[in-house]
């Protein structure tokens, strides 16, 4: 290989790596610098006393508190809905599926993983329309529908992590467990699932992050600018990413803009924290295995 080509490969690669990292630090640094100053109780609660807001005594209008509550409810609800279905599908794929059925379902999971979140949101919205027609207008886009939509969005990830975690259990262990007199179902629920628990847990944490950041899907399924703290499954709600989005396009003054930076920083910390947690789980899991 000529020297020129070698140098091109080496320094070209280092250059694009630096380019990517500087792009990352440029955008995130901007948020951290601008958002760092805004972090204060007033950012969350506006003019309401923090204790009153936390105890739901007084409604917060000028702060991010309702949006954070909305995002937390949404995230927990969707992952609660997605986990059982996702984990069970993962189990089915790794232990019971054979031949054509397995190929069909993996194709479904791959497709589902790629479907844009706005299209999933459109699905959630059509589902809401269906319910709206069926219940004669009592149920429309709402927290539950949004959570269901996000559950569909994160299910493929959970299915895959479950399947991968289960498939790393080696043949020797499987033979030993059968030799102990376990039926296939007993083996899965008493041995394989506990063994794969940290991998599945990690998938769940990543799903939490995905739900917290997604905006497009909830835009069509019931998120609004002001709704207060979520009060019912069938009510409208606020969410942090949507608040950031609306502030970016419709802010009216420097105060609101500062709130946008604060919200972006909070969301970044939330997602970064969830990612760090999942990395910790992966790290501990690896050290145990050694």
């Amino acid at each position: 290989m000529s020297l020129w080509k070698r140098l091109l490969i080496r320094y070209g690669s280092f250059f694009v790596t630096l380019l990517l990292l500087s792009g990352l630090f440029f955008f995130l640094g901007h948020i951290v610098l601008k958002g760092g100053n805004t972090l204060s109780p007033a950012l969350l609660f506006g003019e309401v006393a923090p204790m009153d807001a936390l105890l739901f005594k007084e409604r917060v209008f000028e702060g991010l508190f309702p949006a954070i509550c909305g995002t937390l409810c949404l995230v927990l609800l969707s992952v609660t809905l997605a986990l059982p279905a996702g984990v069970l599908t993962g189990i089915w794929l790794s232990h019971f599926a054979r031949g054509r059925a397995k190929r069909t379902l993996t194709l479904c999971v791959d497709t589902l993983a790629g479907v844009p979140s706005i299209v999933v949101g459109l699905f959630g919205f059509s589902f809401a329309i269906l319910l709206h027609t069926l219940t004669k207008g009592r149920i429309g886009p709402c927290l539950l529908i949004a959570a269901l939509t996000l559950a569909v969005l994160v299910m493929p990830g959970i299915i895959r992590t479950t399947e991968v975690a289960l498939s790393t259990i080696d043949r020797g262990t499987r033979l030993r467990v059968s030799a102990m007199g376990a039926t296939p179902v007993q083996a899965i629920f008493h041995v394989y699932l506990p063994m794969a628990a940290s991998g599945i847990f990690r998938g769940g944490v990543l799903a939490l992050g995905r739900c917290a950041e997604d905006t497009a899907a909830i835009m069509l399924t019931g998120v609004v600018v002001t709704a207060g703290v979520p009060y019912a499954l069938f009510g409208r709600f606020e969410a942090l990413p949507f608040a950031i989005f609306t502030i970016a396009s419709e802010y009216t003054g420097p105060e609101e803009l500062a709130r946008g930076y604060g919200a972006a920083l909070i969301l970044l910390i939330l997602c970064g924290g969830l990612f760090g947690l999942s990395a910790c789980i992966a790290c501990r899991f690896r050290s145990i295995k050694r």
Binding site: G172, L175, R176, A179, M180, G181, A182, M195
Partner: peptide, 21 residues
């Protein structure tokens, strides 16, 4: 009935690999 058979015929393998419990 394999589970029942394996309760009556137990086995010890060459390499001791305890399960992670």
């Amino acid at each position: 009935n394999l589970p029942l058979l394996r309760q009556k015929v137990a086995m010890v393998f060459q390499n001791p690999t305890p399960l992670p419990f």
